[in-house]
Amino acid sequence: MAAKIAHADVEVGTELPAQSFPVTRATLVQYAGASGDFNPIHWNEKFAVGVGLPDVIAHGMFTMAEAVRVVTDWAVDPAAVVEYGVRFTKPVVVPNDDQGALIEVTGKVAALLDDNKVRVDLVAMSAGQKVLGMSRAVVQLG
C-alpha cells in the first residue's frame, strides 16, 4: 500500500498542506467514548484542577490522531503511514466555552529514505505552545 504521491515528486523541505483541528469539550466526550479512555482530566474541570492542571485537557492520543491527518490526507491511502511516533510535550487545554481549543498542524518532508519512503516531521501547536515533540511519520510513497 503506497501513497498516491510519487517519491520522485518530493524533496527535503516539501511542505504538506497544513490543517487546523478545533476541539471542544463535546469533542473530548465523544473521543472518550470511542477510545474507551474515560480519565476525568479530559472532561471534569474540578478533577483536572485538583490534580494541578490549568483546566480540562485533550487526550494526548486525540492530538496524535489529529496530527497524522496532515499525512494521511496528503497520502490519500492512510496505510502509506508505516511508522508514526510523538512525544507529548504540553497539554492541549480545552476551556468550557463555544470556542474550545485549536490544534494547528504543519508538516514537511525531512528526509528521503530507501525503498521510496520519506520521513515527514510534524509540528502541532495549540495556544502558541508546541504540544507534540519528535512528531514523525515514515510514509511509503509510490
Partner: peptide, 25 residues
C-alpha cells in the same frame, strides 16, 4: 466508523468498503 467520527476524520478508507477496496484493502 465511531472512532473515525470521534476524531473528525472523513477519509473514506475508514467507512466505505468500496473506497478501501479501490486502495487495495
Amino acid at each position: 466508523r465511531e472512532f473515525a467520527e470521534a476524531v473528525g476524520d472523513r477519509n473514506p478508507a475508514y467507512t466505505d468498503q468500496e473506497a478501501a477496496k479501490a486502495l487495495g484493502h
